[in-house]
Design a binder for these strands. Structure first.
Length: 508
RNA sequence: GGGCCAUUAGCUCAAUUGGCAGAGCAGUAGACUCUUAAUCUAUUGGUUCUAGGUUCGAGUCCUAGAUGGCCCA
């Protein structure tokens, strides 16, 4: 392998060259010696899907009458040569179309050259539409060009690429080989487009905004941030864990209804439902409360389900999820009692009692946690996984909801909800805390927790308090996890399946 | 962070109790003017994830590590 040795001598990383690549490099050398090896002067004028839509149901005779010549281009995914005739499956962004290539229909030498082209090469072809004897719509090729020489062999044609690690690391190969993977990302795009249209529809008119990704003070969620550094200002900055405090500043500013669909970064573990960077829809809505936000969420996801699935149901990993409302709304307290029937109502705020129940269930607790936090832990440990159908869980304890408005009748809980589907948290929303003095006090409690060792506790954000002091209209706000939503609609078991480039450790 | 499992040709996978590392597809050469995972003939291709160890002998057993998957925290 002289190539490899020469490359290593030239200081390049040792490539995973092999004889298959070497053979293709030799073919590329021949192309270079005879002209432009990577031309960019071929223009397609249609796609596979467009041809199938136009001609898919026409019979052979009627296609004979079509005199138009079409230009297509794409990757050669299959090649079947039979002497002087060949069939190629050409894959483009829309799908695939078959080429029928006859030696005697092409200029001298083209067919001979084609026989040495490889699966994975990118071709351009012109020709009239026809139907083969076996009935497949095809292009009878009158002009054929090699546009890109592919140097690396594609995975095997029948089994494709199944190795999960390779599918994530080399997503480009996964997208070439797996229809299913392409479909997931088409669906993801449709979901996000739908949400934008829904939020901006007449009558709602939420304004899409962009707020900073780098924060001097991380805020808006309980999570550990990634730290980075601004050299010119010699200032540590944090990749945002949530856009919440900035979006609410915009509510103070009078924008009234705002939303943002963008990335959050949390310095936490990786799992089938967690990626260090993930996408959230977050919106804020003046003169609305948490019940309005629940109504809006229910309407949005019901309509989304219709738009994506054409039905009110989704099958996720064998579970049938029914999005037609109304969805159950259940307080944290009621949910805990439903799944722990031995607990009396009076027990739910008894700190010592909750602590003993948690310890009996092997639920980890900390000394400085009050009854609100303990109740929430108990909920997560015993109730969450049972919430398969869309369910709003309401009235989270104030202790775990430092940005939410207290309930008017029960100040130890907030006007907050989370939406669960398939046992997973999909959304989190609440009536916003717009009392600057209450908010300042909650920040001080968070700082005390942080000083006591809670790395996820919030910082005191003085500018945010200042903003509230100017007066924030009463409002509701909510965050919706887009990746988890896409998982549901694409029946994907792992968040990595719905991220084009999920987090992976660097290759060895 | 812990447990279990996996890693063999470009890809998908075999390899009996520790005893010659194999197949299909892809590739290469040839045949073939209607194929659909085309077919037929011949044929090339290996750091068995890495580093140690046990053994006459290791893909297989042991130790450590890497990466991935699943489960748990």
């Amino acid at each position: 392998m002289t190539d490899t040795r020469e490359e290593q001598a030239a200081g390049q990383p040792a490539a995973d060259e092999n004889r298959l690549i070497a053979e293709r490099r030799a073919k590329l050398d021949t192309l270079r010696s005879t002209g432009q090896a990577y031309p960019n002067d071929f223009r397609k004028d249609t796609t596979a899907a467009e041809l199938i839509a136009r001609f898919g149901d026409r019979d052979a005779d009627s296609l004979e009458a079509v005199e138009d010549v079409f230009a297509v281009a794409g990757r050669m995914m299959a090649k079947r040569v039979m002497g002087k005739i060949a069939f190629v499956r050409l894959q483009d962004r829309s799908g695939a179309i078959q080429l029928m290539i006859q030696r005697d229909h092409l200029p001298e030498g083209v067919f001979h050259a084609f026989k040495h082209w490889d699966i994975g090469d990118i071709l351009g072809a012109r020709g009239r539409v026809m139907r083969t004897q076996k009935g497949e719509l095809s292009i009878r090729v009158s002009e054929l060009r090699l546009l890109v020489k592919s140097l690396r062999p594609l995975p095997e044609k029948y089994h494709g690429l199944t190795d999960t690690e390779l599918r994530y690391r080399q997503r480009y190969v996964d997208l070439i080989m797996n229809d299913n993977s392409r479909n997931v990302f088409h669906t993801r795009s449709r979901i996000i487009s739908f949400i934008r249209a829904f939020m901006e529809a007449p009558g709602r008119e939420f304004l899409e905004v962009e707020t900073p990704m780098m924060h001097p003070i991380p805020g808006g969620a309980a999570a550990r941030p990634f730290v980075t550094h601004h050299n010119a200002l010699d200032l540590d900055m944090y990749l945002r864990i949530a856009p919440e405090l900035y979006l609410k500043r915009l509510i103070v500013g009078g924008l009234g209804r705002v939303y943002e669909i963008n990335r959050n970064f949390r310095n936490e573990g990786v799992s089938t439902t967690h990626n260090p960077e993930f996408t959230m829809l977050e919106f804020y809505w003046a003169y609305a409360d948490y019940r309005d936000a629940m109504d809006l969420t229910e309407m949005m996801l019901s309509e989304l389900t219709q738009a994506i699935r054409g039905d009110h149901k989704v099958i996720y990993q064998g579970l049938e999820i029914d999005f037609s409302g109304p969805w159950e709304r259940l307080s944290v307290e009621d949910a805990v009692r439903r799944y722990n029937p031995k607990l009396a109502e009076a027990d739910l705020w008894n700190e010592d009692f909750l602590r003993s129940v948690c310890s009996g269930l092997q639920v980890h607790t900390e000394k400085n946690w009050g009854p609100g936090r303990l109740l929430t832990e108990l909920f997560e440990a015993t109730a969450e996984e049972n919430l398969v159908q869309p369910t709003f869980i309401t009235h989270y304890p104030t202790e775990v909801s430092p940005l939410s408005r207290r309930n008017d009748d029960h100040p130890e809980v907030t006007d907050r909800f989370e939406l669960f589907i398939c046992g997973r948290e999909i959304a989190n929303g609440f009536s916003e805390l717009n009392d600057p003095e209450d908010q300042a006090e909650r920040f001080r409690e968070q700082v005390a927790n942080k000083d006591a060792g809670d790395q996820e506790a919030m910082h005191y954000d003085a500018d945010y308090i200042r903003a509230l002091e100017y007066g924030m209209p009463p409002a509701a706000g909510e965050g919706v996890g887009i990746d988890r939503l896409v998982m549901l609609y694409t029946d994907s078991p792992s968040i990595r399946d719905v991220l084009l480039f999920p987090y992976l450790r660097p290759e060895a």
